[in-house]
């Protein structure tokens, strides 16, 4: 720490403007990897969760099985989850995505199920009275009405995923977690603090964007306040 240029990098300060300006590219790359991992995971989980929730609703035994298995998956700590998937995926981004998908599934299946169960029976009967078949009722009545609960699940899953991606640093695919991990080993305070702060910013921003999406998708919920 006796380097001649007495800037904040040499002093290893927590806050460092020079760090931000000289490491822009690294920060951008890490943030983009973070966003990609989160987005892909939640998207795959959503695609898987919908049929699972529909199956769970249709058959009683399927409901118990789906909820039981996803609850068990959710209980497994993240570091262990990534490690258990290691023989299947090796040291790859797919490993992190697979782990995150399994976590998001629990939150999404539960919320979609709760949303579908809360669809008023009147709305269903009105659809039937209009001559809607089961598929049309599902697509035009039940799914739109369950959107608030679904989006609530997507928001929780996304925020959790942003936080959990950092653990992916153990296999080298942790987005900003990589910077935190490297910063810990080299005692680089500015890097750890900046990467941590960016994680929180991404989580909050993603949450707000999803909230906005929900308001745009469900204009009828605003009428009642």
């Amino acid at each position: 720490m006796t380097a001649p240029p007495d800037d904040c990098l040499a002093r290893n300060d927590w806050l460092c403007g020079a760090y931000l300006s000289t490491r822009q590219e690294i920060l951008l790359d890490a943030s983009l990897q973070h966003l990609r991992l989160t987005f892909v995971s939640v998207l795959i989980a959503l695609v898987l969760a919908l049929p699972l929730a529909l199956a769970a609703r249709r058959r009683h035994w399927a409901g118990g099985t789906v909820l039981g298995v996803t609850t068990i998956l959710y209980t497994i700590p993240s570091l262990a989850m990534f490690s258990l998937l290691l023989p299947l995926y090796g040291l790859s981004a797919s490993l992190v995505v697979a782990g995150l998908v399994l976590y998001s599934l629990t939150l999404l299946v539960r919320n979609i199920l709760a949303g579908l169960r809360d669809v008023p029976e009147d709305a269903r009967q009105a659809a039937r009275g209009l001559g809607y078949g089961p598929l049309r009722t599902l697509l035009t009545v039940e799914l739109p009405l369950s959107l608030p609960a679904t989006v609530a699940g997507v928001r929780i899953a996304t925020v959790s995923a942003v936080s959990l991606v950092t653990i992916g640093a153990i296999v080298g695919y942790g987005g900003l977690g990589n910077l935190i991990y490297a910063g810990m080993n080299t005692y680089f305070k500015a890097q750890v603090l900046t990467a941590s702060a960016l994680c929180v910013v991404i989580a909050v921003a993603a949450d707000l964007v999803l909230l906005l999406v929900q308001r745009l998708l469900t204009p009828w919920t605003r009428a009642g306040g």
């Binding site: 936080s163 950092t166 653990i167 991990y181 941590s196 994680c199 929180v200 989580a203 909050v204 949450d207």
Partner: peptide
């Protein structure tokens, strides 16, 4: 939920 455990 938003603050990563690892970061803290």
């Amino acid at each position: 939920r938003a603050v990563p455990t690892f970061a803290v």
